[in-house]
Design a protein around this nucleic acid. Structure first.
Lengths: 177, 177
DNA sequence: ACGAACTAGTCAATAGCTGAACTATTTCCC
DNA sequence: GGGAAATAGTTCAGCTATTGACTAGTTCGT
């Protein structure tokens, strides 16, 4: 039975199969954890891929470039290290991306007056205009994704994900001392 | 006020700030959708990065390589295209990864008897042993992440993410006709 | 049974990310 | 005040994954 064909396996039946085999054949103890994280990653990948392919690639922009522009747009002039923190990218990635976006005239890099090592990233007028424009489309498509959940469900989802992130960070901090 | 410094901004206060500005200054209508998807991506990135850095990189294995081995391990001998579907990667990515893993002796590639174009990927004995071993550690760390949620909360989370994925796929299918 | 259309897998070129080394500035401390 | 340690940002080398073109094999229609 184990070597048989499974031509019609999709993601969900795979999760079910994995659950069963991990528990019954191998005796691993945390199947629900695996299921949660498998599903979490799948959902994130699908949404991200869809938004990038539908909204950003057609305009010649990468997903990462959008994320960087997004935080600079909304969090005002920002140091590269701050942008890296908010987006979750490395400082090197921010530096490389910013180089391209400055070249395209969307981003300005002005030296910090108080700290000669530092630099502030801000949107140019063109960058501001592009973000207002592109985010309209982005936001509509986001709404298309979340529309299958009620508002209450969406709030619960945010709350649970928040708990996952925050709770684990506290756990880490406690164990690192 | 808009050009002032925000040195202590973290992810959560950024989300709050973004929410406020998108609604009040720009009048976008779907802030909750943005919040849901921002949080979803953040959670997925954090978990994935943590598991890769803590469990897989130290053993010289990439996140993608683990994902491929994982589906081949549990879904039995599998065609590359099936593995691509289950992992969400491109067929080319599977092909490239498989090349390396065959070289490392973890994966076997046997030609399909019925279809001369096709190929079956399966774990070698070494690959099987490595998966049992590495998944023990992986699963423990997964459990460390989800432990901050009760079992009921974990089930709700899976259910909501499931609804997000499945509901949207149906929406897409309906609109594509 | 033959050719057209389709499908599976691989290859080549490219883009993007990471970690590590490097430069320039600032802060700390004696 | 002066030198050591710390910090901000950039650059570079290496790696990974993706897209698109290509090859080989299969299926379907006539």
């Amino acid at each position: 039975m184990s070597g048989s064909e499974r031509p019609d396996l999709d993601f969900w039946s795979f999760v079910a199969l994995a659950n069963r085999r991990l528990a019954e054949e191998y005796g691993f103890g945390h199947q629900l954890a695996t299921e949660v994280l498998l599903t979490l990653n799948r959902a994130s990948d699908l949404v991200t891929y869809d938004l990038e392919a539908a909204v950003h690639r057609p305009r010649g922009r990468s997903w990462s470039a959008f994320r960087l522009l997004f935080v600079v747009w909304l969090a005002g002039p920002l140091e590269p290290s701050g942008a890296a923190r908010l987006t979750g990218m490395s400082r090197a990635a921010v530096s490389n991306l910013a180089k391209g976006l400055v070249g395209d005239g969307l981003l300005a890099r002005t030296p910090d007056e108080r700290d000669g090592r530092s630099v502030r990233l801000s949107l140019t007028a063109a960058g501001q205009a592009e973000m207002v424009d592109v985010f309209r489309e982005h936001n509509e498509r986001e709404a298309g994704w979340t529309a299958v959940l009620t508002e209450a469900e969406q709030r619960i989802l945010v709350m649970l994900l928040d708990k996952l992130i925050t709770g684990h960070r506290e756990f880490e901090a406690r164990n690192r001392r």
